[in-house]
Design a protein around this nucleic acid. Structure first.
Lengths: 192, 192, 192, 192
DNA sequence: TCTTAATCGAGACGGTACGTCAGGTCTTCAA
DNA sequence: TTGAAGACCTGACGTACCGTCTCGATTAAGA
């Protein structure tokens, strides 16, 4: 069996240092004020090493966020749909509100507005997997009879997450727990 | 009574040329690739003249968008709430999808994620007035009995516009008319 | 009469600061270790300002050297050709040996070996004028009968300066006064 | 008695490929635009292999030139000093004018202006041996009575080669045969 | 003939400097 | 007093090479 003839492999130490530096800087000064130059300096790495593995600073942040998002926004399945939705939307809210992840994530979304390649990667790597998980949970609820078989699952997802992003992006302040519960109740009302 | 005889006041010609150039460039290359330098060149104006009247390129775009948004997203009041919501949300969708306004608007929102002053201006000048108009229309529908007095108007606004922004920002494609109608129906269902 | 409509003019202060910084750095670390970046930093000037007015660091050094060379290697005319040649060749020797000018000049000549444009400028601005002055002095000596009318003036110039450059470039050590005088005597011997 | 285990394992194939690549690239793009990176790529060799055997690219070129110079500028001894000088100086002229060797040699001399170690090697390996050969030939001419015993041989060497280098370095064009003959005649005139 | 250690290709790495671009400030001159 | 022109300092961009450094893979002794 053929192996790549190989040579020196990617330095895992540098790799992690870069992701950490990117998130740190993003938390400190906000995504828009992060530069590749600063990430390199903070990570003790040369700019070339960053450009060797990522095309733009956005791609670095995307990878760093990917790791964090996975653990930060797991979708529980306790059997109680409403409770699980409350847990999960609250986690999303925290993720968006946290100075560490929120600024980076929003900045990243901003960047995708004028970087098609980054947009594609964001959707494929971050958005779609998470939407799929949510759809799975809703489908499971349908099977358990907590949700009508006619429920428009896609619409439910939009109705749940749309308002959360909306308030955050337009600087309207995050939902309180009460508002979040009201939101969930209303969205599910028709199909419970 | 004497007026100061001298004093060329602000040149309205330059003012308009700058706003037009800003929107043109934004349409052509996307908000993120627009520079004050390019706006100045396109408008036949010196950079100084731009910086004299606006603090950042975002502020220029904000003013330019303000004019367009006002005319592009009027909220009709025909007496039929559902029809009016369909008209208006479709207009918002168009505004967000149009290459001329959508890219500029999204880019602007992006910029506000790391520019507090701009965020404030965006909210005060663009968002709040439009939200207020929507609330007014809903209140009027309440008075006419098309909407229950217990309806949570703020929640309705979030549920209507949140998903529209959400799909646009996360590159999930715009709503079709059908989906839009389904969205409106679902949002109003409880309180009709 | 039309003047250029103009705008802010070139800053003479920056201009001189750049030339001085270039010569200082060249003296300190040798031509080859001078960078545009360092010149800019030393002169308290942006790189852009250097690139606005000169194409390469070589061009900066050339201009700086031009000023110095003019005053450092004047060709006297006391009426005594041999005495004048001794004075002038000694001055050239000093110019080539001085840490301030020699390193820069030699480095510049080096650079012209792979920069045609710079080579042209060097020849036109530095070499030819100085050769012309030497030829003038020799012609004047011919008129005064100190040199035969058949003397090959061009050859004399080559024979005088060639060896001086040769020893310097090939690191063979500078001429002593005695060797310099022997050189001059031999070169003139045939046509005195 | 122990011998150093050493084991001469240097790859002669790589060695020659590097020297050839260095000269080729120097001919193609000029010494100053040659990089170790490019030599390695052209020679199909890793950079490490070059740095293992030479300290700088100048050292590579020096070795490559050394081989060529030896064969290209032999000093004949036909018994006729003037004829031999004409032959040899013409060969030197060709060596300096050839795109293959001239650019590399001049670039190398240039480099020695800010690399002392390289300067030492250049003088020891290239210059001095060749000067010694010339001195030998002149001494032989003295013994045969073609040159006065008082002749200043060192001065003669400087006077012959100085002008050739001088014209080449300062981009004044090479000597024609006539000028070269005139140069030789004049240099020898006093001591024939 | 089989180790075994130097050398090889490949190329990642931390760096320095490159030459360019845009930002935002400042100066000059014309209207 | 504005405005157009554009020079200026700043700082980041993305690239090219530098010289150092691991990696297996190759190879030519000497045991």
């Amino acid at each position: 069996m053929m192996m790549a003839p190989n040579a020196q492999r990617r330095s895992e130490k540098s790799h992690q240092a870069i992701l950490a530096a990117a998130m740190d800087l993003s938390a400190e000064r906000g995504y828009g004020n992060v530069t590749v130059e600063a990430i390199a300096a903070r990570a003790g790495v040369s700019k070339k090493t960053i450009y060797r593995w990522w095309p733009t600073k956005g791609a670095v942040i995307l990878e760093a966020l990917g790791e964090l998002a996975q653990t930060a926004t797991v979708f529980p399945d306790t059997g109680d749909l409403v409770a699980d939705l409350r847990t999960q939307t609250a986690a999303v809210l925290d993720f968006l509100a946290s100075p560490r992840t929120g600024s980076a994530y929003l900045g990243l979304i901003a960047e995708t507005q004028h970087d098609e390649a980054l947009a594609r990667d964001l959707v494929e790597q971050l958005i779609k997997p998470r939407v799929a998980v949510a759809m799975d949970r809703l489908r499971s609820a349908q099977r358990q009879g907590q949700l009508s078989p006619e429920a428009d699952l896609e619409l439910i997802v939009e109705l749940l997450y749309g308002p959360i992003y909306y308030r955050r992006l337009l600087h309207l302040g995050p939902h309180t727990d009460d508002r979040l519960h009201a939101l969930i109740d209303h969205v599910l009302s028709q199909w419970r």
